[in-house]
Write a protein that binds this DNA or RNA. Structure first.
Lengths: 205, 205
DNA sequence: ACCTGAACACCGTTCAAGT
DNA sequence: ACCTGAACACCGTTCAAGT
């Protein structure tokens, strides 16, 4: 009768946040194939079945781990210039991919509709707006920019650039950001070298 | 004693190529989690254990499936312009990603050192050379271009653009290619707006 | 040489039972 | 309310045995 937190029962020894944190740490240390229910439970000093009180099943555990990972990049401070904000966002995404090589690729497979994901996209929208990209182009420019940064982060995390030095990878990432900045500026200047989105849908037979 | 293909034994009912083809088809139809040894075997009218004569284990099966997928984009005809060749390569990659949504992401995880992968990269190298990109910039430009195209193909395959129309996705992909073409041309013109690769490694303390 | 049946380890998941 | 033991289905993999 030491229990104080509920009508009848025992105090919780673990909670969802701990489960997700240990799952992420386990994957970081030993790879995705080591991320089993039993493995996570062992780190918490508990049996595998105990986890089912905190996650619905393994898919839910993986979703939660991805969400925990997304928590790591908060929106950049509003005081900075648009290009500094984008640079910060891109750098955070790349750093997260490097820290969590095995889990990061799950970002692709899992729903991108989470709150965290939307916050990041909104931060990019604001930066593009501040850069002067016309409202009707912001969404497409965001998709291209995000896709390119994600592609780089995924490639690096998956080890496609295994043979390259850290310096070379940093130089590549800088080059990618420079390319994207030039693109954004040309969109802002309304140079619009090509008609990228059809203004109306005439001629759809 | 109908057997003619070896000293003693029975004729093979299945071979590696068939195993990989059925594995790819199974994943295309029912997703990656349906891609089990037993599932592949069933499609071939054989038991799961029979597969081990043709693939070393499941990891080898997955490697083989990815390689089978890579076979689908042959090097573009040498007669075409560099930009047509790059456009063809990019289009083939995107089409393959759309056809094989669940297997395509494995491209990231698996070794990129296969013969097919090298052929594709060499084709890009030749196109960039023909475009006039200086020799010492070709490798980095290839990494950025390939990364961006791969990022788009992966995002689309994984369903990140689920809510967008086919027309919108086509427009996005065209925009990406236009952006990359502009980038390549600016590299070729030696405009080099930024120092992207350090020419020598002075000042490394 | 190629395939199968039996057998095993491992993993996700359930459910009734303990505190 | 929270955790455990027993139990099950499923999957990858082995090995000796069949043709």
């Amino acid at each position: 009768m030491l229990y104080t937190n509920s009508v009848v029962g025992r105090p919780a020894r673990i909670d969802r946040t701990q489960v997700l944190a240990e799952a992420l740490a386990l994957a970081d240390e030993h790879g995705l194939e080591a991320l089993t229910m039993a493995g996570v439970a062992e780190r918490l000093g508990v049996t595998a079945m105990a986890l089912y009180r905190h996650v619905a099943n393994k898919a839910d555990l993986l979703d939660g781990v991805v969400e925990a990972l997304l928590t790591e990049f908060p929106p950049p401070p509003a005081g900075l210039s648009w290009s500094d904000r984008l640079g910060l966002l891109a750098g955070n995404i790349r750093a997260s991919a490097r820290r969590h090589r095995s889990v990061f690729p799950l970002l692709l497979q899992r729903p991108a509709t989470t709150a965290e994901a939307r916050h990041t996209r909104d931060a990019v929208y604001r930066a593009l707006g501040d850069a002067g990209v016309p409202d009707d182009r912001v969404a497409q420019v965001e998709r291209l920019v995000s896709t390119a940064v994600l592609g780089f982060a995924l490639s690096e995390a998956a080890g496609r650039f295994r043979d390259h030095s850290r310096r070379q990878l940093d130089a590549d990432f800088d080059a990618l950001q420079a390319l994207l900045s030039k693109f954004i500026e040309s969109e802002a200047a309304n140079e619009a070298p090509l008609r990228l989105v059809e203004p109306s849908d005439h001629d759809v037979s």
